[in-house]
């Protein structure tokens, strides 16, 4: 759903640009805590993988295609703040080198796919992991649901931006219906790819998955009273 130049007026593009800069600056500070010895080398790789996966448009109904966004996949693998940085790099490379997504729309695309998708998707993931069984299956179900919802969420965020700053005077209901409908379908693909990749990493090295920390904590003979986020004294 890379937004091209021209769909939104300059004021809206400047606003989303400012929001994107602010969130990325915050993410640079917050990602410190996520990037331990294990996660750091995987962050760059995850971004590269998402770039590759985004090249694969899969067909959905009615002569339309979609591709992975990868926000939930990245957030579960390397942590949400690091995911915001990874997704932003992917979108930057796509806009600058490949003319995929407009340059003036870069802030908009970061807002939709690096901020809304990550924040909402990871929020849903955390909520679900809190209530679902602390098993691999529970984790994958949470990730699948979060990945599925992250796509229509980004699509509806675009509709909200279009309502504020859309250049064309077309009925908003039509935009919402068209965007929402097709992105529900693309969300199914998003969930499938997210589960396939996460499932593969969990099968070989679950300890590398940021969002699977609660599985290790639930392991037998291990204290659950361990304080969260403690012990980083680099």
């Amino acid at each position: 759903m890379h937004v091209p130049d021209g769909f939104l007026d300059p004021a809206t593009s400047v606003a989303t640009g400012a929001l994107a800069v602010g969130v990325v600056a915050l993410a640079i500070r917050r990602a410190e805590r996520e990037l331990d010895d294990r996660a750091a080398p995987l962050a760059g790789l995850t971004a590269a993988f998402v770039f590759a996966a985004q090249m694969i448009n899969f067909p959905v109904a009615g002569g339309t295609s979609g591709h992975l966004i990868g926000a939930v996949l990245t957030a579960v693998l390397v942590g949400p703040w690091t995911a915001i940085l990874c997704m932003t790099v992917v979108l930057l490379v796509q806009a600058v080198l490949f003319a995929d997504g407009g340059l003036t729309a870069l802030g908009t695309n970061v807002t939709l796919m690096a901020v809304v998708s990550v924040v909402l998707g990871y929020g849903v993931f955390r909520l679900l992991t809190a209530v679902l069984p602390r098993t691999r299956g529970g984790l994958l179900a949470a990730a699948a649901t979060a990945a599925f919802l992250s796509v229509p969420a980004a699509a509806l965020a675009f509709v909200a931006l279009f309502a504020v700053g859309g250049v064309a005077g077309v009925p908003l209901g039509a935009v919402a219906a068209a965007m929402g409908g097709v992105h529900l379908l693309i969300g199914v693909g998003e969930a499938a790819i997210t589960v396939a990749v996460l499932g593969a990493v969990l099968a070989v090295r679950p300890d590398l998955v940021h969002g699977a920390t609660h599985l290790h904590q639930a392991a037998p003979l291990q204290s659950r009273a361990e304080p969260v986020g403690a012990g980083i004294t680099r």
């Binding site: 090249m55 448009n57 339309t64």
Partner: peptide
């Protein structure tokens, strides 16, 4: 990859 228009384009 499919060359059909993506979700936003369509």
């Amino acid at each position: 990859a499919s060359s059909s228009p993506d979700g936003l384009e369509s």
